[in-house]
Amino acid sequence: MPSQTWVVVGFLLLVGLAAQSVEPASSELHPVEIRNPPLLGKVDSGLRDASGVAIGIECATCHGPSGSAALASEGDESIHGEIALAHGALACASCHDPTDRTRLRLADGQAIPFAEVMTLCGQCHGPVLRSFEHGAHGGGRGHWDRSRGPFVRNNCVACHDAHQPAYPLVSPAPGPNDRFQPAAQNGAPGRHGAEEASEHE
């Protein structure tokens, strides 16, 4: 009888241990981190610090409560003439809080920090926000399995320029040079040279 009891106790202990070792993996998930661009809510001064990192100017430097600069639709040529608005019919104050330039402002008047820009953009871009919230827009880096590591996501303005949100044209990375797909277009020399490539066309 005592031996049987020990077997049962041992079995229960084993089950308990197994449950313990499984549980942390499922319950302790690494976070989803949102990557903010380095100059979020700042103006690029065009200067770089000693390590090459862009130096940003806080909006409140000029537009602070005591600042006098206006928040007009036209950019101020002196400091951020590069801000050319090409975002529908929006004006600065559509998104920026005119009374506190360190924050953004929702359509209902609620001020939010720059890091919560997704909420702001989602006011108009609802389907995109829905996709983003389900991990189907915006990409990311790190881990698909958050029991092993974090998933680092982009916020809207990490990829899109809020003032000109249309994705720009880019030069593609070089194409393949393999024997079936010689670089034929634009006379780019393939592995067998441009002449043979044009024969394959």
Binding site: H137, G138, G139, G140, R141, G142, H143, W144, D145, R146, S147, R148, G149, N154, C159, Y167
Partner: peptide, 14 residues
């Protein structure tokens, strides 16, 4: 090992 494939991390359009 729980990580994303290299192509998924590299995609700039998500």
């Amino acid at each position: 090992r729980g990580k994303l494939p290299a192509c998924a991390e590299a995609c700039p359009t998500g």
